[in-house]
Design a protein around this nucleic acid. Structure first.
Lengths: 340, 340
DNA sequence: CCTTTCGCTGACAACGTTGTCCATTCATTG
DNA sequence: CAATGAATGGACAACGTTGTCAGCGAAAGG
């Protein structure tokens, strides 16, 4: 018994063929609009299809043809306001290529990433777009060899040479920190994500470079890397502000940090300047409005997906690295001068 | 040729069997951890699997077994801050059932919804979670008969009797409007989404009921339904404020309307009270902080997915309608008294 | 009128897996 | 020592589709 009790089993091409009084292959031809069928026969087959409510089983079809017309997207969290436009962009490109999209969230967990990726591979997706959570992707090598094109986004793959689409994290951060320096700040804090995350590292590097370029010393007490949970960020920032020589400005390493920082600073008497990496909705409506380094999430997703489909269409030069520029959006919070 | 040039073709169970010197079915048994294989044989097969980098083709497997262990999620926009937690919740439940998730955005377009749904059905997903964009789902009837369990979320299906999980839109709106009335407002505007959208209708009904319950007249000029594009909302609100008897408070029908309203009101000299349907991040950081009717997006997604899996596990009583309560979150913007 | 060509159609194998069932082996038992 | 039966392994069909190829009839050409 192949159908759930209580349900009529799905008609197959065989059923349609029988009903229309034609051969199996003729039905296939009609369904796929292949040439070489008389209008009369087409008509008969069409009627049988409608009468039976037949719908082609794409799983079976794709088993035969070898392509599944589906791709997998693994990211950190579907619900993260930074990743959701990215996934929407991937979806859009996939749609343009008549391809369906599997999605999964790794929750920043290496094991879960691998589990998802391999599950997608077992489903024989044609390709993958992955926001890495792990830093070792050698487990993907056999899959890639077997023909599963893979493009990494937002962070590079670990241990393998693969396509990747990134934002210019270091450059963007340099620009943001330079903006704070230009407004007179000398003691600038940096709160970022865990060091094992590539972008966190890059942004920290950008911070150090900008400070060095301005000839400013950096105290390690101004730097705090770790989980972006509100409590951790709150504690870190509070400590920086309570130090004997408190920071007068903060660079926030991503939007979750920025939001928590805004909350903390709202309770501060001293004005503290703030620039955040990642734009977010309503940043312009806060008071002060938050100056940010905006990344192009849609651009990242689109570029990654397009690169993936180029691979699927046969482009197979060596792995590419695409870096998208960021954009400083000046809104006010970065222009607050240091308290005298 | 079944593999892309330049790639090694994937090994199949046959290859593994040959290499391990056992029968095909024995490999299948090992892979599926079925009993009846000597530890010794298991060992040999395992080695062959590793050596060849074999990974079971789930598409083929599922063709045979009839279940695809995948479900489809169709919503309005994956990138919408209201829907992304919902989809994350569905994903979480799916994961707990070892099921993969196809996602697709209908962009509030009936045709596209149907296209997506039918594409998922052609892939023989086990079930569907759908946020309706169309108001006629009779096209789904043959699929449901064929055993594709379907649960609708956020809005009910049109033309068919099916499971649905909703927020209490009318009740929530009543509560929100009553809140404004309690603070002295008599002329309250309502800006909502297009009338063909069920929730828009329900919320409008809630508004009318609350006004009627307080014995307040309603001028049709205080009501504006239509697309939630910022320009349209801006124009509507501006008109309400410029009228001879301007509204002193606004109820915004969803979060997109609320955000645009906040922007418009920021430029207003008169204080205007505001309550919005849907909570959104940072609502508490705006000044005034925005009072909202919060819906439980995660709860909606989870309830829908759980109901779906209950169906998949065989539960087949008649279609259920689950209504989740909303919650008034008082933050300030709703407490502004009417200008004298 | 016979052959060639061509348009149309269908039988059959194959895709990679699982379910059914029979064959073999080997230890146990009468 | 033969009979029994459990444990193990494998041959084969089937899932629903598409690709290959051969057959058939009719139109076209000699």
């Amino acid at each position: 018994m192949t159908h759930t009790p209580g349900h009529t089993p799905r008609p197959t091409m065989k059923d349609v063929a029988a009903r229309a009084g034609v051969g199996l292959k003729t039905v296939s031809r009609v369904v796929n609009e292949e040439p070489g069928v008389t209008p009369d026969t087409i008509q008969r087959v069409r009627e049988a299809i409608d009468a039976l409510g037949f719908r082609r089983n794409d799983s079976a079809r794709l088993l035969r043809t070898g392509r599944t017309a589906s791709i997998g997207l693994v990211l950190e969290d579907l619900a993260d306001p930074f990743y959701s436009p990215l996934s929407r962009a991937v979806e859009e490109v996939a749609r343009a290529h008549s391809t369906l999209l599997f999605t999964g969230s790794s929750a920043e967990n290496a094991e879960r990433e691998q589990e998802l990726v391999l599950a997608f591979c077992a489903r024989r997706v044609d390709g993958l777009v992955v926001v890495p959570a792990s830093d070792d992707h050698r487990y993907l090598e056999p899959e890639i060899d077997a023909g599963v094109s893979t493009v990494f986004v937002d962070r590079p793959a670990g241990g393998i040479d693969a396509d990747v689409v990134l934002s210019d994290s270091a450059g963007g951060t340099r620009e943001g920190v330079a903006h704070l320096i230009a407004h007179g700040h000398r003691r600038i804090g940096f709160i970022g994500d865990e060091l094992r995350i590539h972008t966190a590292n890059e942004r920290l590097r950008g911070y150090r470079e900008a400070m060095a370029a301005a000839g400013l010393p950096v105290s390690e007490e101004w730097i705090s890397m770790g989980p972006t949970a509100p409590e951790r960020v709150r504690a870190a920032l509070t400590a920086m502000l309570a130090a004997p020589e408190p920071v007068t400005a903060l660079f926030a390493g991503n939007n979750r940090v920025t939001v928590t920082a805004v909350r903390v600073l709202l309770g501060e008497v001293r004005p503290v300047a703030l620039v955040g990496f990642d734009d977010f909705e309503l940043a312009d409506l806060l008071r002060p409005a938050v100056t940010v380094i905006a990344q192009d999430a849609v651009g990242l997703g689109r570029a990654a997906a397009k690169l993936l489909f180029r691979r699927l269409d046969g482009g197979s030069d060596k792995p590419r690295r695409i870096e998208l520029p960021t954009r400083l959006i000046v809104r006010g919070s970065g222009e607050i001068p240091p308290a005298p």
